[in-house]
Design a protein around this nucleic acid. Structure first.
Lengths: 255, 255
DNA sequence: AACAACGTTTCATATTATGAACTTAACCCG
DNA sequence: CGGGTTAAGTTCATAATATGAAACGTTGTT
């Protein structure tokens, strides 16, 4: 290899991480050869990396299929990362209250690059599913939380972060800079963001910013649910509850 | 270094993982120098490993303190590991039902070495805290789920897995082989395990085994709560509910 | 102002990671 | 059956890469 690594002396570690990241929701299970091909690594190298990761339980092998999967140590590290996040810990009670008030799914998300990362999720009583998407990432420009978080960034930063063109998920996804900047401006004025079928048809979400002691947007809280239940008339009511929840969390952060 | 790694060509990767694992619940934040000392690594090496991990967002730096913490990519990987776990997905509905029936905290755990790893946790209405300890590990010999899982192992395996002496957490913790083997035998006969103040004073838990299509114990389900609420008379009632829940999950696994 | 402590960078060195080629095992399919 | 195909895992010579001692720069302290 003659390619220059981002930093010297980190090739194998970066490669090992790329192995870990290959295990996605869409492809949670890999065999050696396809994985090596996917990553463009030598089979022997990939095997050694997998073995090292397996010896530390970051990766395990499915007893039946013999294929590689993410292992128990990853679960433990993920739990630690969440528990170490004071934002999440502080928010949890308020988020639960919000989910109970609205009977819809409440989420807490932070910005990571061009994506909104789900730190916590409390299901309303309508759906019988608990915290299924903690750790998931959604395209920021197509979600209410994402737009709330983007609205706090200077335009220059936006241009660095967002891909051009912005990918479209439904006919209502915002894909032009013009439309996005207008929506973000409206979000700032309004104090909350609305994403109506921008990520998925039939899905509406309303998000509000969480501010730290300094007044900076550090996270977003949202309520999401089917457009069937979240009708236009309920929208302002829900928005008020989401904003109140976000404000309470902000106050707990010392605002 | 002249120490032989478990496998050749994996030193830096194993070291990088040891860096990740240094971030525990007790010590979620590290500075460079103490971390290098703790791990017995050179400061420059540790710095390079941290930089590599940070470049991939497995580690981040706290904006205020400048110290290192687990990063967003770990949260994402943890979420993927959980979602990829079909056992957890299959169990979730039943676990929620159990928590609702009993109004106490329901858990799903698997054995990992000498510890029980929490895959899912649904709080009853008494406690306002959601899935705080997913990914946590508890000493198997001192928990109901742990004893259920140990009860399925041949004695020889037990001796390999469990440390001698077994650490004690309360005056009721089982620490002798004799007592443990008797308890495990009783668990097998009874069909469920009870841990009364064995891990923590005031805490009672009742666990039952989840069996796969093959009849092998692959996980344990439990209800845990304060001895104040989980009185002796409620014990058999709770045990029946826990066993029924575990049996329903087992059936879903094809038993 | 001198010192101390810590994060970060440099660089010569050889240890360690690498990948081409090989071995082994399982599995088709004629 | 049995010869052929595929994929997992192993070996080993090579040099590229990780290593750590020492130097550097920055910040805070006495």
């Amino acid at each position: 290899m003659t390619t220059t690594s981002p930093y010297p002396g980190t090739q194998s570690v970066v490669r090992a991480i790329s192995v870990l990241k290959a295990f996605t929701d869409e492809h949670p299970e890999w065999s050696l050869t396809p994985l090596a091909q996917e990553l463009g690594l030598n089979k022997a190298t990939t095997f050694r990396l997998l073995t090292a990761l397996e010896s530390e339980s970051l990766i395990m092998r499915d007893p039946q299929s013999e294929k590689y999967r993410l292992g128990p140590a990853i679960v433990t590290l993920g739990g630690r990362a969440l528990r170490a996040n004071s934002l999440r810990v502080v928010s949890q009670g308020e988020l639960q209250a919000l989910a109970a008030e609205t009977n819809e799914t409440a989420s807490l998300e932070v910005l990571h690059g061009k994506e909104a990362l789900v730190l916590d999720e409390i299901a309303g009583n309508h759906v019988m599913t608990g915290s299924q998407s903690i750790g998931s990432r959604w395209p920021a420009h197509a979600t209410s939380t994402g737009k709330v978080l983007l609205a706090a960034l200077p335009e220059q930063r936006l241009r660095q972060v967002l891909p051009t063109p912005m990918p479209s998920y439904t006919p209502h996804t915002i894909t032009s800079w013009d439309a996005l900047l207008r929506d973000l401006a409206a979000t700032r004025v309004r104090g909350y963001a609305v994403a109506r079928e921008e990520l998925e048809i039939g899905l509406l979400a309303i998000g509000a910013p969480v501010l730290n002691h300094d007044g900076q947007t550090v996270a977003a809280v949202s309520i999401a649910g089917p457009t069937l239940r979240l009708t236009a008339q309920r929208e302002s009511e829900i928005a008020a509850l989401v904003c109140a929840c976000a404000a309470r969390i902000s106050r707990r952060l010392g605002l």
